[in-house]
Write a protein that binds this DNA or RNA. Structure first.
Lengths: 260, 260
DNA sequence: GGCATCACGTTTGCATGCACTTTTGCCATG
DNA sequence: CATGGCAAAAGTGCATGCAAACGTGATGCC
């Protein structure tokens, strides 16, 4: 209910503020994957002490947007290709659930709101890539928020942000073209009300977004030094050089840090 | 290699320790929903300062196991019936994904491990309910962990714990009977390798667990006082009214302080 | 007696300080 | 000249202290 909204919105929710700011900076690629996030700097920037900054980083780490290594500076997360693939797989299921719950149950106002958002996407299409990606992501979050299921909203948001991060890592300059159209189709199908149709539409949409982005395991730019250099490291000799930069996927893989 | 693997497991990962302890205490109902978790107390109990305890609470709040209200003592989360239902819906999708990835790909050792776990469940069947519930939950987490997808593992674990919490809230004494059998069926189907079969099996399994637990919106025991009393509050004056402003349902916010 | 007010103890919110770890630049040494 | 090691610098890990907010019981007023 509304009773505990005021505490986290209007009240001095400083860690939430920092989280939102960082989230946005990350998904807009103002902060690239691997970028360092020292507590001091954040604290100073946002006018708070390290305690708060640290807490915010903890939150973001729990969401998978930043990586926290002990005694080391926090960095923006750099999902591996495999993680990216897994993330999209999860996302597909989650969002199928979203549209299943939504199909045929949206009010006219909600449909209008969705259309308005896509309009905004359209406008931003020629702007910077980061903005289009963010808007596309927020479309899905908007959709999720219409389920009014806090848990679903949270998971979809989280996953969507992670996918967004992934996209910024792997995707080529322009892949959001057709996605906008697919968003419109989605809205129409939702209004129309056939759950199966809209589920399959969503599935296809996300699948193709993932495919467009994750084709051929392109090089993860900005990734950790060790990983970037991995393919170069085991060249037997400097001579017969690098035709094979197809990058062995999970060399340092597993990549340790799971839940926790 | 292995350069930073030791850090977070064996090293002084105190907040992780506290998280694990609390998680377990919560899902075993040692800490019932609504139970207070003062930072001081936790800190003292685990031999750390409030800083650490606070951080752990933050983590658990991010996982949805505890509720954090500003300037108030943290409490174990008490999911509403609707949230519970939503949680299970999400869980079904996620775990379908798990078994889809796993079907026909498990090693003999893994199958043995799964069977061993179910054996443990079997043994605990006559023990305290909380233990059976925990083991049943951990079966699913074990399954998820076999996907070796960190993200999927994390989400399934989180969701499963939340469901576990829900179960402890809503479920009647003994509903885990048949679940154990269903676990065995699941393993067999996984070994057999037909993805569709095992997915539908998992779906049915979770669905029936949810149904057994969430039938008829049974009273949420241990829930917030205001909610527990809600149905009693609008009884039309049993004999002779104390006052006319008999606590409307959502009045908890203003009740305490405002009056204006 | 009922109700509003107030004051005190409790608990969180947050900043700061210190110890410890990692990193980096520098120097001695082979 | 290359290499190993040391020491200063930077940054995190964590405890503690203080202020503000909340909860509660006591007090005074009607």
């Amino acid at each position: 209910m509304a009773r505990d909204e005021n505490r986290s919105r209007s009240a001095t929710d400083r860690v939430g503020t920092i989280c939102r700011a960082l989230r946005r900076a990350i998904i807009e690629q103002a902060l690239e994957p691997g970028a360092k996030l020292p507590e001091d700097a954040l604290g100073e920037r946002f006018g708070v002490s390290r305690t708060i900054a640290r807490h915010a980083l903890g939150q973001l780490a729990a969401e998978g947007l930043v990586e926290l290594r002990r005694n080391r500076i926090a960095v923006v997360a750099t999902p591996s290709w495999q993680e990216a693939r897994d993330t999209f797989d999860i996302r597909i299921e989650l969002e199928r659930l979203v549209v299943r719950q939504l199909a045929g149950r949206l009010s006219k106002a909600q449909i209008a709101q969705l259309h308005a958002h896509v309009d905004a996407e359209d406008e931003a299409r020629n702007g910077p890539d980061a903005i289009s990606i963010r808007l596309a992501t927020e479309f899905h979050i908007l959709l999720a928020s219409m389920t009014e299921s806090p848990i679903l909203i949270r998971y979809v948001s989280e996953i969507a942000y992670r996918c967004c991060l992934t996209l910024s890592l792997f995707s080529r300059p322009h892949s959001s073209e057709c996605a906008i159209n697919e968003h419109r189709l989605l809205i129409d199908a939702l209004a129309n009300g056939d759950a199966d149709t809209v589920m399959s539409l969503m599935h296809h949409h996300l699948d193709s977004v993932a495919s467009r982005a994750l084709v051929a395991q392109s090089k993860p730019r900005g990734r950790d030094i060790m990983d970037i250099l991995a393919p170069y490291a085991d060249l037997p000799r400097p001579m017969q050089a690098a035709s094979r930069d197809a990058a062995p996927a999970g060399s340092k893989a597993g990549a340790g840090k799971a839940a926790g």
